[in-house]
Every structure is written in C-alpha cells, then in structure tokens.
Amino acid sequence: MLGTTLPTPLYGLYRERIGFSELIVTVVFAVYAVGVITALLAAGDFSDVLGRRPVLLCALALAALSAVCFLCEGGLPLLYTGRVLSGFSAGLLSGTGTAAVLELAPPGRHARAGLAATAANMGGLGLGPLLSGALAAYAPWPLRLPFLVHLVLLAAAAAVVGRLPETVRRAVPRPPLRPQGMTVPPEVRGVFAPCALAAFAGFALLGLFTAVAPAFLGETLGERNLAAVGAVVFSVFCASTCGQLLLGRVGTRRALPLGALVLVGGLLLVGAALLLESLPVLLLGAVTGGLGQGLAFRAGLTAVGSTAPDTHRGATISAFFVVAYVGISVPVVGVGALAAALGVRAAGMIFAGCAALFVAAVGAALWRRPPASS
C-alpha cells in the first residue's frame, strides 16, 4: 500500500518536467482508483477460489511493475500505466490481504486482526508520501530513488508472503474464474449499506489530501518543501490509524456515527484553513478528519468482514473497498475540474462544504439506525 501513494509529493516535479495542469494530476490519481475498482470487480473473489497466497504474490508483482514504470518515466503514458498497475495491485491486495489476516488470527483475536489489517492499509498509505517526500527533498534522484526503495520493500514482502500458510481449502474440481461484479450476500446487506456509505465519505477526504495536497500547500499556503508536503499527507493517514485504535473503547455501533461527526469537523477545518490560508488549521483539519475516517472505516470493515460468510468473505470485503475507492476518485476529479475553472483555493472550499453536508447526512442516518452488531 505504501507504493500507491509514493507519487503524491512528486506530482509537482512531474508537472515541471512533463507539463500538465492540476486537472491532469487528479486524472492521474483517478486512473489508479479505476485500476483498484476494476481489480475488485473482476477478481475480488479469486482468492476465495485460488487461495490467498497466490493472489497476494500476484499483487506484489503488479506493484513491482508499477515501480518499474515510474523508474522508466518518459511522459504521461507511463505515468498512467504505472498508476493503473498500482491500482490493480491495491485492488487485489486490499480484500485478499484483509481476509488472510482475519483468517490467520487465532480464536478470540479477530478484533485485533481487523485492527492489524486496517492499520497496515492506512499506515502504508501514509508512509508512502512521507518516504518519497523526504527522499525527494534530501536525497539524490528524487524521481527514482523512492521507487528503488519500494522495489526492495516488495522483495522483502514477497519473501514473507511465500512462507505464509494457506487458509483457503481449494475445491475439487476448481470452480471457473469469472468476473464477480459487486457481490454482497443477502445476509450482509443490512450491515453493508451504512458501512459502505461511511467508507465512501471518509475516503473522499483521503483522496483530497492524496491527490491535490501538494497544490493546496504550494499555491495557497506557499509551502513547497516536499518533505513537509509528505508529512502533511502522512498526518491524515496516521490520524486514521489512531482513530482505528479507538474502536475497542467506542464499539462498532457508536463508532460509525461518531466517526462521521468527527469527519465533518475535519472537513470544516480544511475549508477554514483554505479560507484563512493557515497551515496550522490545515494540519488540525487533517488530523481531525483522519481520526473520524479511521474510526468509521475500521468499524465498517470489522462489521462487514465478520458478518460475511466464510465462502464469500473475500468477495464481500472487495465490494466494500469498491465503494470506498469510488469515494476516493470521483470527488477528486471534480475538485481538479473546479480548480481549472476557479482555482485551487475555491475548489477546495467548495469540496469541503459539499463533503461536510454529505457526511453529516450519512452520520445522521447512522445515528438514527446504526448497523446491528455482528
């Protein structure tokens, strides 16, 4: 997951070298999300048939190919290709990795396993811009060294995955592999809908910081240090991981509406930061919004994963991530289009206001009718 956000602080350097607008930056980011959604819809249940380990190894191989595309960067086509491959990798990894961690957990430790899976997901997404921003600011080869480091980390991850026990019993004869689309078993749908809406709202905030944070910081707040840009994006995902830690104290039923409420506060602070042109307020908004997103995301993923039947757990979790990644991509492209017409600052404030209204509506619905505990 670290590799999927490595390019975030580097988009400004790519813009200088290749020459493209802020709208193209959001399209490059959205292409990644399209890759994620395609992989989830086409192969979200493949690990239920083939086993977790082969699919995880395939995801790591796709991530390595993505890094090679960035190392050979020669224009927008390779950037698009690298982002699509990164999306395929994340799409295979998100549902399969979460299911594998839950299944490898000993009895009575599923809650901690859910935390490990979501913390690895969010922690990796946060470490990507922190690592590449620091390397780009203080080390040579700013557009290559981050991806060389990523290849080394992928090799280590592949060595670990190769030694994992397989948790799926393969059926004989093996069922045919077909694109599954959105598969949500009937017994899970009552829990799935509110959890997925909360995930959509939270991932919209993550998409805002991941795709357009460098432009916000550089053009609106005058901050052009790439290490600082990476640190701001990292703060969102770090806060998300911290928010996930609160689930045990809050409980799943209350965590979803409470997380949405905190997320609304974060979005309002982001809008205020752009209005006031204040970096401290932006950091406060990032941390607040990240806490709310993490609390709601882990509660939703835990409820969906534990309610899904064993034979469809991978597919159900993949469907959950499809909704989340629609949230991380579609609103961000809208911000890019608005930025081209109105400027980055106005686009950010409009996004923050609209997103806050949407999250408030979702939170109110969850407060009135929280999902049943699994």
Rank of each mutant, 00 (worst) to 15 (best):
residue 1 M to H: 11
residue 4 T to A: 15
residue 5 T to Q: 07
residue 7 P to S: 10
residue 22 E to H: 14
residue 24 I to D: 03
residue 29 F to E: 03
residue 35 G to Y: 12
residue 37 I to F: 00
residue 44 G to L: 02
residue 44 G to K: 06
residue 46 F to V: 11
residue 49 V to Q: 13
residue 51 G to R: 06
residue 55 V to K: 08
residue 61 A to Q: 03
residue 62 L to R: 03
residue 70 F to W: 02
residue 72 C to G: 00
residue 74 G to V: 00
residue 75 G to S: 03
residue 76 L to V: 11
residue 78 L to N: 00
residue 79 L to W: 07
residue 88 F to K: 09
residue 92 L to G: 02
residue 95 G to D: 05
residue 97 G to N: 04
residue 100 A to P: 06
residue 101 V to L: 14
residue 107 P to T: 11
residue 109 R to W: 06
residue 111 A to H: 14
residue 111 A to C: 01
residue 115 L to F: 15
residue 118 T to P: 09
residue 123 G to M: 09
residue 125 L to V: 09
residue 127 L to T: 05
residue 129 P to I: 03
residue 138 Y to W: 14
residue 146 P to E: 08
residue 149 V to S: 10
residue 149 V to M: 11
residue 151 L to Y: 12
residue 154 L to F: 01
residue 155 A to Y: 00
residue 156 A to T: 00
residue 159 A to V: 07
residue 160 V to T: 12
residue 169 R to V: 14
residue 177 L to H: 06
residue 178 R to Q: 13
residue 181 G to Y: 04
residue 184 V to N: 06
residue 185 P to E: 13
residue 186 P to A: 15
residue 187 E to R: 15
residue 192 F to Q: 08
residue 195 C to A: 15
residue 202 G to R: 05
residue 203 F to I: 12
residue 205 L to D: 04
residue 207 G to F: 08
residue 207 G to W: 07
residue 210 T to E: 12
residue 218 G to Q: 14
residue 218 G to C: 04
residue 221 L to I: 06
residue 222 G to E: 03
residue 226 L to F: 06
residue 234 F to Y: 11
residue 236 V to R: 05
residue 236 V to Q: 01
residue 242 C to M: 10
residue 243 G to P: 02
residue 243 G to A: 01
residue 247 L to K: 03
residue 248 G to P: 10
residue 254 R to G: 12
residue 262 V to W: 09
residue 265 G to F: 05
residue 265 G to V: 00
residue 270 V to D: 05
residue 274 L to I: 10
residue 281 V to I: 15
residue 282 L to R: 05
residue 283 L to G: 13
residue 289 G to C: 10
residue 290 G to I: 13
residue 291 L to Q: 06
residue 293 Q to V: 07
residue 293 Q to T: 14
residue 294 G to N: 08
residue 295 L to W: 04
residue 295 L to P: 01
residue 299 A to L: 06
residue 301 L to A: 11
residue 304 V to Y: 08
residue 308 A to M: 08
residue 309 P to I: 09
residue 314 G to M: 13
residue 317 I to T: 15
residue 321 F to Y: 15
residue 321 F to T: 02
residue 323 V to G: 02
residue 327 G to L: 02
residue 327 G to D: 01
residue 332 V to Q: 13
residue 335 V to A: 08
residue 342 L to A: 14
residue 352 A to E: 11
residue 352 A to H: 11
residue 359 V to N: 03
residue 362 V to L: 00
residue 366 L to M: 10
residue 371 P to C: 12
residue 373 S to K: 07
residue 374 S to Q: 10
